[in-house]
């Protein structure tokens, strides 16, 4: 576990405490609020400097909303998002106003899922990649040209491409452009929301390699949001699993995949089809549908689909606890269940 040790000694760059984001459901002529979609419901975790934290879960589990809260693309309902700035000053991103956030924007950047929708088709690569630089005060065009050329080289594109438009590039190349733009302001935290899920497997491998290499070279910290468990396992130091707006388990990657403690994590991993026809197809262990975050079940949110659910799970909501150092889990029976997988 060298990876986790080296991480342990590092300071957290981002600390999320009791984060909640509820979207109101309105009805009637007066738009009266009749309920809330509990998209993020009491989420706490740390992201250490220089690590990659993977955030996984099914659609609607709140992983994207969590990442959007960090960027303040949506305003959290409650909770703290503590970010350690370059000068070691700790700021709560959840409390800042738009003006106060402005200088911080350069330190936190995002890589988007859709390489076709996230680049402005009417702007050349120079303008697409260079705009964050301009916004952050690099008004000298020659200086910006040099920086864009350097960034394009960094992500494996030729600087001569600078004056072309995004339509001239393939999906994988566009994703590289998106990465170059995210890195233009020398960010310390990069939130990547499904950065490879729109790409073909061979291109996906190239982009994953690029992200790993850039992290090593630039000492970046990644929050990597994805639904593909093999991709998350490949790139992450630690993995957090979300279910219906809650964090259900967080552990170092190898521990999580070899000895998950939450029944949902284990079921999620069993659902991944293994690319080997000799491995017999496992039984489908997770039946039914994800409950609606507007109307979550009583007690443990997972109990209606859980194989091990008892009466206690129906009434008492489990808290997130740490049964072994660095391994967080939200389950009453985390110590008793044996969920060891083949991985």
């Amino acid at each position: 576990m060298t990876a986790s040790h080296s991480v342990d000694t590092k300071q957290p760059l981002l600390q999320i405490r009791d984060l909640r984001k509820f979207f109101p459901i309105t009805a009637g002529v007066f738009n009266k609020t009749v309920g809330h979609v509990r998209a993020v419901d009491d989420v706490s975790f740390d992201v250490f400097e220089g690590e990659t934290l993977g955030l996984v879960g099914e659609s609607g589990c709140g992983k994207t909303t969590t990442s959007r809260c960090i960027l303040r693309a949506v305003d959290p309902t409650s909770g703290q998002i503590l970010f350690r700035r370059k000068n070691d000053e700790i700021v709560d991103l959840a409390k800042l106003t738009r003006e106060e956030l402005q200088p911080l924007r350069a330190e936190i950047q995002m890589i988007f899922q859709d390489p076709f929708g996230s680049l402005n088709p009417r702007m050349t690569l120079f303008d697409n990649v260079g705009e964050p630089l301009l916004v952050n005060g690099m008004t000298n065009r020659a200086e910006r040209t040099d920086r864009v050329a350097e960034l394009l080289k960094l992500v494996g594109l030729r600087p001569e491409f600078m004056h072309r438009f995004p339509h001239a590039f393939s999906g994988g190349q566009r994703q590289r452009i998106g990465i170059a733009r995210a890195l233009s302001t020398n960010p310390r935290l990069v939130v990547a929301d499904e950065p490879v899920s729109a790409l073909d497997v061979s291109v996906q491998a190239q982009v994953l390699n690029l992200l790993l290499e850039l992290q090593k070279r630039l000492g970046l910290t990644f929050l990597f949001v994805a639904h593909d468990l093999s991709v998350v396992r490949h790139i992450s130091d630690r993995v957090a699993v979300m279910y219906v707006g809650q964090l259900v388990e967080l552990a170092p990657t190898k521990t999580l995949f070899s000895r998950p403690r939450h029944p949902y994590t284990s079921a999620l991993m069993r659902a991944v089809p293994v690319p080997d026809p000799r491995i017999p197809v496992g039984e489908v262990t997770l039946k039914g549908e994800v409950p609606s975050p507007a109307n979550p079940p009583s007690g443990c949110y997972f109990h209606p689909r859980c194989r091990f659910a008892t009466e206690r799970c129906k009434v008492e909501a489990p808290a997130l606890r740490e049964p072994s150092p660095g391994h967080f889990v939200r389950c009453h029976f985390a110590d008793e269940l044996d969920l060891t997988t083949a991985f």
Partner: peptide
């Protein structure tokens, strides 16, 4: 080129 759910992690994947 596919990341495996059993293999080594955080290594460069062979690409085409």
């Amino acid at each position: 080129s596919i990341p495996s759910i059993v293999g080594e992690t955080q290594v460069a994947l062979p690409t085409i």
